Amino acid sequence: MPTGVHIRDARQQLFDAAERVLLRDGAAALTSRAVTTEAGVAKGVLHRHFTDFDAFLAELVQDRVRRIGDHSAILRASAGTGTVTGNLTAALTELFDPVAVGIVGLVVFRDELRARLGRGIPVLADAAAMLAGYLTEERAQGRIAADADVDSLALVLIGAGHLLFADRAHRPAAGEVGRVVETVVADVVQRRLL
């Protein structure tokens, strides 16, 4: 791209390009050159908006975390509607879209990025908090047992969900995800509401 040409929303353009590279080629292929080439911009564009490539990647991860925050409010609002199993199945399926799974791999793959983020794997941690918040709402409404350990349930659901969706070549069907969710929550969900 010629210099001096205005790029509208360059940050989003770079994030979108990074997601395409991540989906197509995996975390190991995600480099500043790959991102700028995919975006069709000069390499300097990335460095004009971010101090370095790890700062760019940290913002990419934070962008995904913000999306989880948006979904969290929607999931909490669904408490008391539908079924607990159905709501959790839909949430996990939406949460573990191919980009989110790729971002988890990216954080695991890049030590510098993990150090910069400073708190484990944020996408998974925030997703667990989202599910725990939803389960807390369901517990308050009496749809799951009053003594249910919602934090532990959320961790188990995130771990199981990540394992189900980690294979980039095979996306599990809703029925597969639903069976796992039902098994995890079977002891705490009121039977008539499964």
Rank of each mutant, 00 (worst) to 15 (best):
Y134V: 06
S72F: 07
L135S: 09
A169Q: 09
L92C: 04
R171L: 08
H162Q: 13
A173Y: 14
L88F: 07
V156T: 13
F109W: 15
L75Y: 08
V156D: 12
V101G: 03
A148Y: 02
P98W: 03
L124S: 04
T85N: 15
L153H: 03
G161F: 00
R119Q: 14
R76K: 14
L135H: 09
L124W: 07
I121V: 12
A169D: 12
I74V: 14
V177H: 01
S72D: 14
L157S: 08
I144R: 07
E112S: 11
L124Y: 09
D149S: 02
N87W: 01
V101L: 00
R119W: 13
V104E: 00
L117V: 05
G161C: 08
A125F: 13
V156C: 12
I68M: 01
R143T: 07
D147K: 12
A132T: 12
R114Q: 05
L106F: 03
R139F: 10
D167T: 07
A146Y: 06
Q141F: 10
I158G: 03
G82Y: 01
G69W: 08
A128Y: 00
H71Y: 13
G102H: 01
L92I: 03
T93D: 02
S152A: 14
L95P: 10
V65G: 14
R110K: 05
T81W: 06
D97V: 06
L92F: 05
D97C: 05
G118E: 01
R66T: 05
F109C: 15
G118L: 02
T83Y: 02
R139T: 07
P122R: 04
A77Y: 10
L163M: 13
A77H: 12
T136P: 08
G82F: 01
G105R: 14
V99T: 15
R171V: 05
P122M: 09
D149H: 00
A77T: 15
A115D: 12
V107N: 08
T85S: 15
L117G: 12
A140K: 15
I68Q: 02
A173F: 02
A91M: 04
G82V: 03
V99P: 04
V156L: 15
A145D: 02
H162W: 03
T89L: 00
R76D: 13
M130A: 09
E94A: 15
R139M: 05
L135W: 04
A160Y: 09
V101E: 00
R179N: 11
R114F: 03
G102A: 10
D149P: 11
A154G: 09
E138S: 13
V84P: 02
V84K: 06
S152N: 13
G102C: 00
I121Y: 00
G82C: 11
A146C: 03
D147M: 06
A132S: 06
A115Q: 09
R179A: 14
L124V: 14
A174W: 12
V108A: 12
L131P: 04
G133T: 01
G133R: 01
G133L: 12
A146P: 11
P122Y: 06
A154Q: 09
A173M: 08
L88Y: 02
